[in-house]
């Protein structure tokens, strides 16, 4: 599987994303700099990693979502290729309008880092097919602005369409409907606050994130 990781100034999970993809796919992803305007040819998958792009200044993900590479990412998304945004990557995708809703300051106001219990709300997607038959996972979270918010109408729609992919077992940030990860209508773009790339190794964070990358590998 040919993949790419988009790197913004302030991204800090880019190496983790790189290593997880390399581990699962056997092929090192291309690292694409935010000032580039084109993506490598023939990409099967794009990952937007976590971190504090542009220092989280203005709004988390706001400036990254307007950076030079994003038109190419949006165009690639339109072809139906899978794109995953994790943590700050989720915020960037939401700010880009590629995903519904917005991520606000945690309800408890503090940064939260913990190994979060999650449930798989929809395993019938290209991101989660390998989780079929599994409901409870533990995947680390680490964020200050993960409080998912959307208006009632949107919530009703994404609930009805099966676009909610992960929910928190114990809501850490005030997200509506305990939402930890959502997908777009087409089913090719997903954003999630938990870090699956930090859960691919027994000596670090467990292995509950592996199936996510395996699902993508299977669908590519």
């Amino acid at each position: 599987m040919k993949s790419a990781v988009i790197v913004f100034p302030g991204s800090n999970c880019d190496r983790d994303a790189h290593d997880a993809l390399k581990r699962v796919t056997g092929q090192a992803p291309a690292m694409v700099w935010h000032q580039d305007t084109t993506l490598p040819e023939g990409l099967d998958f794009i990952m937007i990693p976590g971190g504090f792009s542009y220092g989280d200044y203005l709004r988390c993900g706001a400036m990254a979502s307007r950076s030079a590479i994003m038109p190419a990412v949006i165009a690639h998304a339109a072809t139906g290729a899978p794109i995953l945004g994790v943590c700050n990557g989720f915020q960037i995708l939401a700010e880009s309008g590629l995903l519904p809703g917005a991520l606000m300051r945690n309800a408890g106001l503090n940064f939260v880092c913990e190994k979060a219990p999650l449930t798989v709300a929809n395993s019938n997607t290209r991101f989660t097919s390998a989780y079929a038959g599994r409901s409870d996972l533990t995947i680390p979270i680490a964020h200050h602005d993960g409080n998912y918010n959307a208006d009632e109408e949107t919530l009703e729609r994404i609930e009805g369409e099966g676009q909610i992919i992960f929910r928190y077992g114990r809501n850490p940030n005030g997200s509506v409907h305990d939402i930890a990860g959502v997908m777009n209508e087409n089913g090719n773009i997903m954003g999630m606050m938990p870090h699956p790339e930090r859960a691919v190794d027994v000596n670090h964070g467990g292995t509950d994130g592996l199936a996510l990358f395996e699902s993508l590998l299977g669908s590519a």
Partner: peptide, 18 residues
Amino acid sequence: IWNQYDRHVMADTAASSE
């Protein structure tokens, strides 16, 4: 205290405060 610190970034933390 330590729940407010990212203890896992860089994906090499085998044991931290938690």
